[in-house]
Amino acid sequence: MDVKVVIPARYGSSRLPGKPLLMLLGKPVIWHVVERCKEAGIGRDNIFVATDDQRIIEALKDYDINVVLTSLSHQSGTDRINEVAAIKSWSDEVVVLNVQGDEPIIPFTLIQNITAFTLANPHYQITTAVVPLTNQDDFTNSNVVKAILGNHGRAIYFTRSRAPMNRDNPNDLSLAKRHIGIYAYRVSALKQFCSYSEDELEHYEKLEQLRALSHGMIIGVTVFNGIVPHGIDTIDDFNNIKRIMKESNSLNG
Rank of each mutant, 00 (worst) to 15 (best):
M1N: 09
V3I: 06
V3S: 03
V6M: 08
V6Y: 11
A9H: 13
R10Y: 15
Y11P: 02
G12A: 10
G12F: 11
K19L: 13
K19G: 05
K19S: 11
P20W: 08
M23T: 14
M23R: 14
L25I: 11
G26S: 06
I30Y: 04
H32A: 05
V33W: 00
E35M: 09
C37P: 00
I42Q: 05
R44D: 10
D45I: 04
A50C: 09
Q54E: 13
I65T: 06
I65D: 06
V67S: 11
H74F: 08
H74M: 06
D79N: 12
I81K: 03
A86I: 07
I87V: 09
W90E: 02
E93M: 04
V99G: 01
Q100V: 01
G101P: 00
I105W: 00
I106M: 03
T109M: 15
T109N: 15
T109G: 09
T109W: 11
F117K: 03
L119Q: 15
A120N: 15
P122S: 11
P122N: 09
H123S: 10
Y124F: 07
T134D: 07
T134Y: 10
S142R: 15
K146V: 07
G150E: 04
N151T: 11
N151Q: 14
H152G: 10
A155K: 01
F158E: 12
A163E: 08
M165P: 01
S174K: 04
S174P: 01
S174R: 06
A176Y: 11
R178P: 03
H179W: 14
I180V: 01
A184T: 06
Y185E: 03
V187E: 02
S188W: 04
Q192V: 10
S195L: 13
S197N: 09
D199A: 03
D199H: 00
L201I: 00
Y204S: 12
Y204N: 14
Y204D: 14
Y204F: 15
L207N: 15
E208R: 14
Q209D: 13
L210G: 12
A212C: 07
L213D: 14
L213S: 15
S214Q: 14
S214I: 08
H215K: 13
G220P: 05
T222A: 04
F224L: 06
N225C: 10
I227L: 08
P229G: 07
I232N: 07
D236A: 13
F238H: 11
N240L: 09
N240K: 08
I241V: 06
R243F: 13
I244H: 02
M245H: 12
K246P: 01
K246G: 02
E247W: 14
